[in-house]
């Protein structure tokens, strides 16, 4: 039995060897020299395609790649960090010029970034950043700008005067910090607008409702609410509804989740700030081209956000 197995093994080995020699000769004498290599090849490791946000990101990248004549290879990690590492290795084997990563997890992606570094392939991260390894540039939504946009919209709707409430996200998270900072910077431009209450509500719909109920008890006059995400904004809508004060209050959220879009269509919410994943994908391809052209890049490029109101909601 042992003999049989070793025979099979040696046969298999022989076959593989023959193949590799043949194949090697084919590559050396094959006619694929030159011209094809001129085209920039970009590998794009996306975290998942099971979420519309990342589907849009991939589509944006594909669209821009086609316009710019860039060859794009996409690998989908299906939200599995191990799978992402494997597929990035596979992309690196194909001698890509630039690697764009939308990490499943910032820590677990570090070994993949390092192996790209080892092979001299420049790395761009999108949406989530990598905790270690050398990354040329990072592309993500500009949450500060989004907060400012919310403030600006509010001021315009309120005629630059009024009393507003801010429902904050989980303290310490970058989203809560940046969105809050942008919003307060924006509101400070208007002397007649004051933030009369600022309470954390944990990015949570139920908490958003309770916190808003309490604030409504304490303040008889409220003109607008800005919440750091749509879940809290929708919670506030419920509280305002049962207090009968929804019609007189402007509600602005953040993220453009489906429920919020419906609420905007129904006139319950007034606006939300949407991230633009498709734009992030496009920017990644543009920056990859910049790298290929040997031009310098900044560490970080903010992707613009979009104000969604009843006028442009889909």
């Amino acid at each position: 039995m042992f003999k049989k197995k070793s025979l099979i093994l040696s046969l298999a080995f022989l076959l593989v060897l023959t193949l590799s020699v043949n194949a090697g000769a084919f590559w050396i004498f094959g006619d694929d020299d030159g011209q094809e290599k001129e085209k920039l090849t970009v590998g794009f490791a996306v975290s998942t395609q099971n979420n519309p946000f990342f589907v849009d990101m991939k589509k944006g990248a594909e669209k821009r790649a086609e316009e710019m004549g860039v060859e794009l290879m996409v690998a989908d990690a299906q939200n599995d960090a191990a799978k992402q590492l494997n597929s990035i290795q596979d992309l690196l084997v194909k001698q890509i010029d630039v690697l764009v990563i939308n990490p499943v997890n910032g820590d677990a992606i570090a070994p993949a970034v390092k192996s790209a570094n080892d092979q001299g392939v420049p790395v761009i991260t999108v949406d989530r950043s990598a905790s270690d390894g050398k990354v040329v540039t990072h592309i993500a939504s500009d949450n500060v700008k989004g907060g400012e946009m919310a403030a600006e919209y509010m001021a315009k709707q309120l005629g630059e005067e009024g009393k507003v409430v801010e429902l904050a996200g989980i303290p310490g998270t970058s989203a809560a910090r940046d969105r809050g900072e942008g919003f307060n910077n924006g509101i400070e431009q208007y002397d007649e607008i004051s933030v009369i209450a600022r309470q954390p509500a944990g990015f949570d719909r139920a908490k958003g409702m309770t916190v808003m109920e309490n604030i409504l008890q304490a303040h008889q006059e409220i003109d607008a609410v800005f919440a750091h995400n749509d879940s809290m904004a929708l919670g506030a809508v419920e509280a305002l509804k049962s207090a009968g004060r929804l019609d007189s209050t402007l509600v602005v959220g953040f993220d453009a989740i489906d429920d919020a879009l419906t609420a905007i269509k129904d006139g319950e919410m007034n606006a939300t700030i949407a991230q633009q994943p498709s734009l992030m994908g496009e920017m990644a391809i543009e920056k990859a081209q910049t790298i290929a052209n040997d031009k310098d890049l900044k560490d970080y490029y903010p992707a613009k956000l979009k104000l969604i109101t009843k006028d442009n909601v889909q």
Partner: peptide, 27 residues
């Protein structure tokens, strides 16, 4: 397995390289 390897070797020039074969076994 050999059949699949043959097909892939013919379809992708990157498949039958030492780096890639080690990648496969590691993965």
């Amino acid at each position: 397995l050999l059949g699949i390897i043959v097909v892939l070797s013919l379809s992708s020039e990157y498949f039958l390289t030492v780096t890639n074969l080690f990648n496969i076994v590691t993965q």
